[in-house]
Design a protein around this nucleic acid. Sequence first.
DNA 1: TAATATACGTCAACATGTCTGACATAAAAT
DNA 2: ATTTTATGTCAGACATGTTGACGTATATTA
Lengths: 169, 169
Amino acid sequence: MSDIKFTDRRTGSNPLFLRDEEIREGVELLFYAYRDHVSDPDNILRKQGFGRAHHRVIHFVGRNPNINVAELLKILRITKQSLGRVLKQLVDEDIINQRVSTEDRRQRLLTLTDKGEELERILSEPQRQRFARAYREAGPEAVAGFRKVLEGLINEDERRAILDKITRS
Amino acid sequence: MSDIKFTDRRTGSNPLFLRDEEIREGVELLFYAYRDHVSDPDNILRKQGFGRAHHRVIHFVGRNPNINVAELLKILRITKQSLGRVLKQLVDEDIINQRVSTEDRRQRLLTLTDKGEELERILSEPQRQRFARAYREAGPEAVAGFRKVLEGLINEDERRAILDKITRS
DNA sequence: TAATATACGTCAACATGTCTGACATAAAAT
DNA sequence: ATTTTATGTCAGACATGTTGACGTATATTA
């Protein structure tokens, strides 16, 4: 501990930046950012009788049109029984459409209905605004760093596949 | 910056980097990173009969020794009845210690017991490792950007207070 | 000092989202 | 023809959250 205490931990310019304190602050920042980030759609959905589970389904079906149930389960890491209830509600409410795959007629492919697309837009709007603000305030280089670290936080064995999926568009 | 369409969106060097796609990818990355990040302690705790709620309490009491109940509720954004159940278990299991504040004898100040400190260490270890790996791979500048963006994602009206608390040490 | 407000605990009832386990069906793969 | 896969569903349980109501000790204020 010679002159380390004089380096600014927050700039990350300290070669010992991997120290506990730096990391703990990252963990906490992530908690608060995520808490606020998900609170937006949570509040909207509660008024409609849906919850966070519904939002995740809407989000990932929106992002992955024609996804099948098994793949959706893998992403969400829940059981099919859990998904079943939520999915049934969304289908009943005409948010999500199920249709039989032509290639494999066992599979049910999921898409958002028009109503679902609309709801998705409403739900993601405040999140996009929040990100837009954060990105704007932080600047392009910070955004690049943000993405880089997030990628590194993802499980190594799935990272490649996830990144391919996300940036496939 | 005339030929914007040739800039690489992912480097953030594009002045139009706020576009939907860029933001959408950020939202997704955040989801996956957070999902994996919280899965570590989740798995450990399940074996001990605790859940994610217990982890959050352990974490924030650990980070805020002598926090009182009202403040903890504000952080967690749950009701005192919800907290009550979890807290009672943690006190019964000698993970958390409650004592009456000398300044205001209505308040119960919460701290981790030695056993609680030990458990906290076990729980946060894989998270710290995950962060250490991600930070190492991404480099100091990326880490600075990561933090900057996360800060921007936090609700504006609470940001200052949260940052003060996190970096107060 | 008396009245009120605050911090906390607790009981009850209920909603949601998750789980495990078991079983059924249709379709694909062997 | 048999087995495996993708999905759905029923039943029962648990974890975590909610509202609402009430009690108690202590602090604050009129």
